[in-house]
Simulated assay, not measured.
Amino acid sequence: MRLSLAASPQASEPRCATSGTLARWYAEQPAVRRLWAVQATDRPMLRVIVMLEPSLDGDEISPAWMAHGSRWARDLRERLAGAVQLERIDGPLPDEFEIEGEGAVLAALCWRDSTAPDA
């Protein structure tokens, strides 16, 4: 599957309850710069991929991930009442990146990222 980051995310109403829940969670997490959620066709687990804001003293994002990653994953599982695999990617990103597997993108949120197209 290929996610294109060159195209700006849709600014429409959430397509499902899951994307609405993810949008609310994203709005509550200032350390998360971008979020993508992918529902795989071959497994019931929802993949939530985040890109974090760099720290104030540099580009290091590991401290925020280490401090919040487990809590974020637990919070997402509780809110979505299901299996969630939370993953982190590092930026800056190319115009597009690949993830393995087949599925549907349920959310692509980047309004907090001033480097994103049309942000």
Score class of each variant (00 low, 15 high):
43 R>P: 00
118 D>V: 08
63 P>V: 13
46 L>A: 01
47 R>M: 13
41 T>D: 13
53 E>C: 13
32 V>R: 01
34 R>K: 10
38 V>T: 04
61 I>A: 00
59 D>C: 05
96 E>D: 13
118 D>E: 12
88 R>K: 14
55 S>H: 08
81 A>H: 07
74 R>I: 00
40 A>N: 07
105 V>S: 05
59 D>E: 12
67 A>H: 11
70 S>W: 02
50 V>Y: 04
61 I>C: 06
50 V>T: 09
53 E>P: 02
35 L>E: 04
78 E>S: 15
74 R>P: 05
100 E>D: 12
116 A>T: 01
98 E>R: 11
55 S>E: 15
92 P>D: 06
91 G>N: 01
75 D>A: 14
99 I>C: 07
45 M>A: 15
72 W>T: 01
47 R>I: 00
118 D>R: 10
58 G>E: 00
85 Q>Y: 15
114 S>Y: 09
47 R>E: 07
74 R>M: 08
32 V>W: 01
95 D>M: 06
109 L>H: 07
77 R>Y: 04
58 G>L: 02
59 D>Q: 09
43 R>I: 01
60 E>S: 11
47 R>D: 15
87 E>C: 12
48 V>C: 07
98 E>Y: 11
108 A>N: 03
60 E>H: 15
111 W>G: 06
104 A>T: 15
34 R>Q: 08
67 A>F: 05
62 S>P: 01
89 I>C: 04
78 E>D: 13
63 P>Q: 11
113 D>P: 00
94 P>V: 06
50 V>H: 00
69 G>W: 04
70 S>N: 07
115 T>L: 14
66 M>I: 07
54 P>M: 06
40 A>K: 11
106 L>E: 05
33 R>Y: 07
51 M>P: 03
119 A>S: 15
39 Q>D: 05
50 V>M: 02
73 A>P: 00
32 V>M: 02
32 V>P: 01
80 L>V: 05
115 T>E: 12
115 T>N: 05
64 A>E: 09
80 L>A: 02
63 P>C: 05
103 G>L: 12
87 E>Y: 02
40 A>T: 07
59 D>N: 13
46 L>K: 07
49 I>Y: 01
93 L>N: 00
52 L>W: 02
64 A>V: 03
32 V>D: 02
37 A>V: 10
87 E>L: 12
40 A>G: 08
83 A>Q: 12
38 V>N: 00
82 G>P: 03
90 D>S: 10
59 D>G: 12
110 C>I: 01
103 G>C: 06
43 R>F: 05
61 I>T: 09
112 R>S: 09
70 S>C: 11
91 G>L: 05
80 L>G: 00
107 A>Q: 00
111 W>F: 15
75 D>C: 06
118 D>C: 08
98 E>W: 15
61 I>M: 04
100 E>M: 06
41 T>K: 12
62 S>E: 14
117 P>S: 08
119 A>G: 15
118 D>N: 12
105 V>F: 04
96 E>G: 03
52 L>I: 03
33 R>E: 10
104 A>Y: 09
107 A>E: 06
61 I>Y: 02
112 R>H: 15
90 D>T: 12
44 P>M: 09
112 R>K: 15
104 A>M: 09
68 H>Q: 13
